[in-house]
């Protein structure tokens, strides 16, 4: 474990917590007898969260952590896997099933056919992998899928008029975690002999590059202190 990877994992955890906070806000808001102004805005406007991206992430964790009970790495590793699995599936459940949260989900805008991402990633994993075993192919699939999982969310943000802060922070943290992982891979490449994982590195690089324009608009909205807005 190195500081870059720990920072990456903590940033990833933060992104999940921000999303859970947002869902909690929507839930508690509708509980009020009189909707406060913020609640009114929250309930009226769509949450800006893409269910498609959440479902892809649940699939990413389900296929990546198949070894959670067979290969014990460390207590930290197991706990984090359980947190990511538990949170990703519960977020999908909330947006799909929860009587209040689902109202804030705008399915007419979240129209990305994520199935078109799953199939090519699966085919690519069958062709390009480190070892042709069931677990390894699914693990590689999870890497390819995670690289593109943010696309439905980014497209939804382009369609969302006013992106609220929590959603913007969520996407930022999600992109930042993988950027920190790239630093971790560089560090491990120079400090650990034979540490070479081209598949992981290229997927991680593609994933981070997909956030490039979001990062640009996110930082310029911070600098100019204006609302985050993505050009359509």
């Amino acid at each position: 474990m190195n500081i870059f990877r720990l920072a990456g994992d903590m940033t990833h955890l933060m992104s999940v917590l921000v999303l859970l906070l947002k869902i909690h806000t929507i839930k508690s808001c509708a509980g009020k007898s009189y909707p406060c102004s913020l609640c009114f805005i929250l309930l009226e406007s769509s949450s800006g969260i893409s269910l498609k991206t959440q479902e892809l992430y649940a699939l990413v964790f389900a296929t990546r952590y198949l070894d959670i009970f067979t290969d014990f790495i460390s207590v930290y590793n197991t706990i984090m896997k359980l947190i990511f699995l538990g949170s990703s599936f519960s977020i999908v459940w909330y947006i799909r099933r929860h009587k209040i949260v689902r109202r804030s989900y705008d399915k007419d805008q979240d129209t990305f056919r994520h199935f078109f991402l799953v199939l090519p990633c699966l085919l690519l994993a069958l062709i390009i992998n480190e070892k042709f075993t069931f677990k390894e192919v699914l693990w590689t699939f999870s890497l390819y899928l995670e690289a593109v999982a943010i696309l439905p969310q980014l497209i939804l943000l382009q369609r969302t008029r006013n992106i609220d802060n929590l959603t913007g922070q969520y996407v930022f943290l999600l992109g930042a975690y993988r950027a920190l992982y790239i630093l971790n891979w560089i560090y491990r490449y120079f400090t650990e002999p034979h540490y070479v994982h081209w598949i992981t590195w290229i997927s991680g690089l593609v994933q981070t590059l997909l956030y490039a324009d979001f990062f640009y608009y996110y930082f310029s909205s911070l600098k100019n202190n204006v609302k985050l807005k993505l050009p359509a």
């Binding site: 994992d9 990546r64 070894d67 290969d71 070892k131 992982y181």
Partner: peptide
């Protein structure tokens, strides 16, 4: 060896 095969990152 199997340790190498196990992916130690999240």
């Amino acid at each position: 060896d199997d340790k190498e095969a196990a992916h130690d990152e999240l």
